[in-house]
Amino acid sequence: MIGLDRMTAVAATEFRLAFRNRWVLLSTLAFTLFALALAFLGSGPSGALKADALTLTAASLSTLTVYLVPLMALLVSYDSIAGEIERGTLALVLATPLKRGELVLAKFCGHLAVLALAIAIGYGIAGAVIAGAHGADDAGLLAWARLLSTAVLLGAVFIALGMALSGLPRQTGTAAALAIGAWLVLVVLYDLALLGAVIVDQGGAFTKTVFPALVLANPGDAFRLYNLALIESNAPIAGLDGLAHTLPFPVSSALLVLVLWLAASLAVAWALTRRIRP
């Protein structure tokens, strides 16, 4: 299929560019350092707890991942469409037989490969160091693998979201502002607003019925709940994360939420790219 070859070309160029401008190096470094910092400066795993170091760090790292991975994902994808309009290359690319749908999907794949590599190396190194220092059991390794793969899925959601936002404006500056705004709203303000509502509600109908659904509807929270719910431990969890063990839905619904976000964002990115006049 010739279409596949075109898409491979686009994805490969995105990947190559991310390497050349040191993006891969920087993000890998960030992931490694944050994971290691949490492992060794954080709770300070001791024999007193039943859980092993890997499981404990996976739990705390899932919270950090909610902030870090979406940020990195948006950073890699925010100018993917607007940037090409600004540089004049979009008109050039769309004059070739490459379809707009192919462009969106191929860029997405290229960005995802970059982010997945950074997460895999970063968390992989951190996991190996922790296991080397404190030992690891099957549950810990499983929790770590789960964290790593769902972090890639969470990253995919935000890459697609960044591309959708990138299809709105014609300037990269505006696209950057939109991406930062999306991060603030989805990752920071959303949880704050929900916590505020729960406090006001004081255990009423909202807290029991609407609240869990709203928490699960947020991709970051869905990711965190999925990871925490599957970690069998008495590791301390607080705040919204208390829901992890009292969630009125099956755990897999959290994964479904992430997949739905991914599909919807890609669809919006495609639809917006279709109406662009380069």
Partner: peptide, 29 residues
């Protein structure tokens, strides 16, 4: 059938000339 050269085009600075050409060759099959 068509090839296009816009007035203002900025190819990615980090790519080499050969890489830019390879990229577009693959897009055009």
């Amino acid at each position: 059938a068509v090839s296009y050269l816009p007035e203002q085009v900025v190819f990615p600075k980090a790519l080499t000339g050969a890489e830019v050409l390879t990229h577009f060759a693959r897009l055009k099959g």
